[in-house]
Structure formats: C-alpha cells, structure tokens
Write a protein that binds this DNA or RNA. Structure first.
Lengths: 192, 192
DNA sequence: ACTATAAAAATGAACGTTCATTCATTAATT
DNA sequence: AATTAATGAATGAACGTTCATTTTTATAGT
C-alpha cells in the first residue's frame, strides 16, 4: 500500500463519516471532533485533507453528486431512442436513491438547506446536462411534452426523492413492483 | 392592548424571526441571541415563551404546518366531486408555496433534515388526512389510479415543492400559465 | 541488511470564540 | 405594594482551528 492510497483511504473514511453524521445530526450539529473519531483519525488530521469544515462538506457534496450522476447515466448513450434513454436514466436514479440511500439522503439535505454555498450548488447542477439534452431531443421529435425542463424534472425525477424519503422513514416499502408503477407514472407525466 | 395580545405579538415576532433566520442560515447556525435581536426582545425573554431552542423550532414547525394545511383545504369540502376537490386543494397548495414561500421553505427544510424530532413530524403529517380521504374516494369511484397515497402525493403534490425551490433560487419564474400547466401534469399523473 | 538522518504525516492539548441557558436585577403592570 | 414581565451580564460547555510535539515513512551511507 503506497502513500497515496493510504491517504485516499483516510480521506474516504472522513467523507463517509461526514455523510453518516450529517445525515443523523445535520451539518452544524456535527462537530469536527466526532467526524475525526468516527474516521479513526485525530482532530487535527482533518485539516491536512480539507481546508476547513465548509470545504469538507463542499467536497463531500461534489463527490457524492458526481457519483450520483455517474450512476444515473450508466448504460445510457445519446443515440438511444428518447423513451428508452429516459427509462434507463430514470431507473438508474431510482436504483441509486434506494441502494445508496445514505448518499441520496445527504444530497437531498444539501439541496434543501443553506449548508452548501452557491458555487458548490452550481457545480452540482451542471452534471445533469445529458438528461436535459435528452428531453430537448424528445421535445423536438414530438415525444416529450413541450414544457420547461424544470417541470419535466419536477414530475418525473423529483417524485423519486419523496418515495425514497418515505422508504427511509419506514412508512413505505418500495418493492420492484412499486418501482415499475412509479416509472410508469413518471413517463406518463412527461410523454406527449 | 391587553397582556395576551402583547404577549402574542412578541411570540409572533420570535416565530417570524426564527423562520427568516433558519431559512437563511439553518437551524444550528442561528443563535438564540440573533433571534432575540431580530424579534426586538432580549435573549432571556425567549425562555419565557419557549422552553428551549428545540421547543422553539418545534412550535414554529407545528404552527407553520398547521397554517399550511388550513390554507390547503380552503374552499374545499368532502362532498365535492373528486376532480374538483383535487383541483382546489392542489391550487391552494401551489398558491401557499408561492405566496408564503418563507413558510414553505421553512417546512421543506424541516422535512428534509433532522431538525425536527419524530413526534413533531408525526404531528405535522396527520393534517393532510382530508386529501388522503379524497384520494380514497377517487379510487373507490374509479377516477383515481389505484396506487398508494405515497405515489399519488409524490407525483402530484411533491413536484410543487421543486418548482417552488427553483423559483426561490431565481432560476425559474412561475407565471400563472406555468401553474396551470403544472396542475394539468399533476392531475394527469393521478387520474385513472 | 542495518543505521542515521531527513522529511512527511499525524497527533491532541490548548486557544479563543461562540453559544444556549440562567438568574439577580430592573421595569412595567395590576 | 405586590405581582408579573423583561432584561442582559455572567456562566460553563462545546466548538473549530492551530501548532508544538511525536510518530511514521523515505532516503542515504556504510
């Protein structure tokens, strides 16, 4: 094990600890000391990897967001028919939100609070471009409703976040049949 | 002006200050001293009206949530046709989220973070019962899709929260036409 | 292979600040 | 004069961050 991978291992441990603690307690109720303890390093060590607490949470956000979008566009390419492409992306997103719900919940917390500063937020948004492109293509060829991408997102992708929240809170169990049913509703919402 | 109304005035000022500061800075980054200053009272006075910081935010949550549901069911009654009832409730909710976006944003922050403890959350949920009843009626008479209320909510009501967020972040302007368009998508999502 | 030395990484006690909360005192109301 | 409401300085705990010190790793010489 060389230096780099050992450092990376510690960085990873710090990021994982941050996600877990912020999910359970919120950003400001998560002290650096606890993050350090959970990651198995001492308090000062965090500052070898991150400038300060804000920098830490920003980096975690960007990293998780990027893992999310990588996941989202797996097996997708721009040449696909619109409906097929949408189905793949939608199911990827649903899978990510259910399978990696710690990461997903962390993102939803960041996206709904003032934790992340505006630059970090911008950075995170750019990653969904392929989906916006797909929708544009769909609109041009007449298969997608001619509404703004915000509406398309709100009615097809965003609902997954709600279902994921309910599932995590234990009031709702998402079976494969539920996923299929939800997908049908999502596609039905945006198809022309 | 009697004692009660004067007290109420101060309580109101504290609640408003809490909403504004928590919206801008988050719960834990909002010190009691700032809440006091913005409300025009001294630090110690808060503790005449609220047990502690957690109690303060819980009470704000419950109060705002209840204002929200009052708003949601305005002009609605259980005898209405399902479609009409849904339209009224949906539009009320949309109107609330856009008109009272400070309150709405506060709620979305509470619903997406560990700020509020579980009892407070439960309390907030119960208020939507009339909408659940309406959906059940719709399912029984065959006008609403036979899916779980979570799915119905996710695809018809929840998207409004996203649009509201975008509007508040300034990337999206919600005109009355947008609202109408969004309503059509919402109803289309859940109607059989 | 072993040792000596230098460089890098990691530590954790200490610091200064901020915060929620308290309470002795003052002001307002009855 | 008595009661209630409000104050704001004081308190002690907790926090983010720093830095003098220690530990680990890398390098070089024998």
């Amino acid at each position: 094990m060389n230096i780099t991978s050992k450092s990376e291992h510690k960085r990873k441990a710090l990021i994982d600890a941050t996600i877990e603690l912020v999910n359970n307690n919120g950003f400001h109720a998560t002290p650096m000391s606890k993050i350090a303890k959970m990651a198995g390093v001492s308090a000062g060590t965090i500052y070898l990897y991150f400038e300060n607490k804000q920098d830490l949470v920003n980096q975690v956000y960007i990293e998780v967001k990027s893992a999310f979008t990588n996941f989202a566009f797996k097996n997708y390419n721009e040449k696909m028919p619109v409906e097929e492409g949408f189905k793949i992306i939608w199911k990827n997103i649903a899978k990510f939100k259910l399978q990696e719900f710690e990461e997903a919940y962390f993102l939803s917390q960041c996206d709904n609070t003032p934790i992340i500063d505006e630059p970090g937020r911008q950075e995170g948004l750019r990653h969904l471009q392929p989906l916006l492109d797909l929708w544009e293509r769909g609109i041009n060829e007449g298969t997608i409703k001619e509404v703004s991408p915000y509406s398309l997102y709100a009615f097809s992708i965003y609902p997954v976040a709600f279902l994921m929240n309910m599932q995590q809170r234990g009031v709702y169990k998402l079976t494969p049949e539920h996923i299929e049913e939800a997908y049908e509703m999502a596609w039905n919402s945006i198809k022309k």
